[in-house]
Write a protein that binds this DNA or RNA. Structure first.
Lengths: 111, 111
DNA sequence: TTGACATACCTAGTAGCGCAAGGTATGTTC
DNA sequence: GAACATACCTTGCGCTACTAGGTATGTCAA
């Protein structure tokens, strides 16, 4: 059944990843920690969340992966494509709308 | 499996309902429209979302229901209990944390 | 008068997201 | 050589929010 409403609170992990990767290329494990740090532990997304999202975004052409060996370990660095950048813009707009709506309710907008 | 993390973007419909009902008692159908209006159509929760949540909150003792016939129709007005008020406070705090975390990422907090 | 639309309640069934849990492998520290 | 950090990954499940439908009354126009 075609989802019409952006269902309606989801896609936030995706938004966070896209936004972080818009600043600089990063690898999965690094992203997991970055999200905790930047959000001051308010948001703690595990690897079980991050990796599948990264793979999905890569499959959709929103991200590009680049394998890079570092100290005998392999890291997979992701960076935004043009498509990913557009997606980020869209998600960010949606988030602003939703978050603004919630604020309006919380601030006691007259019903 | 015990959910530890507030999973982590959910409960928003619940938050909105509790907050609106903290202002004055309202009935389901009215809440559906109120959410659209106050959020300027940014958030559109259907009756299929609202009613189950209302029933759940009532079952948990967070809401009190009061049937009231109006113009031949029956309306079910809901109002906050003390428990509901506490729940609202808690959810509101959680939301502030999460929303603050997301803002930090979007505003380009250094990772 | 019947058809469409608004009001007002409700439930069943499902999609899919985010999660916990686990699995692999290397490097490091004690 | 055990424990821990790094770094990747997948399976399977719970649960929320959603779509889609159903019931019934009132109103208004054609």
């Amino acid at each position: 059944m075609a989802r019409s409403n952006p269902p309606f609170m989801s896609g936030v992990p995706e938004l966070l990843l896209l936004r972080l990767l818009a600043q600089r290329e990063m690898y999965g494990y690094e992203l997991v920690k970055a999200i905790r740090q930047v959000t001051d532990e308010a948001i703690r997304l595990g690897e079980g969340v991050i990796y599948p999202v990264l793979h999905g975004l890569e499959r959709d052409g929103a991200l590009e992966a680049r394998r890079k060996p570092v100290d005998g370990r392999t890291r997979v660095y992701y960076s935004l494509t043009h498509k990913g950048s557009q997606r980020l813009d869209r998600l960010q707009d949606e988030w602003q709308r939703v978050q603004g709506g919630i604020s309006a309710v919380l601030e006691g907008g007259r019903a």
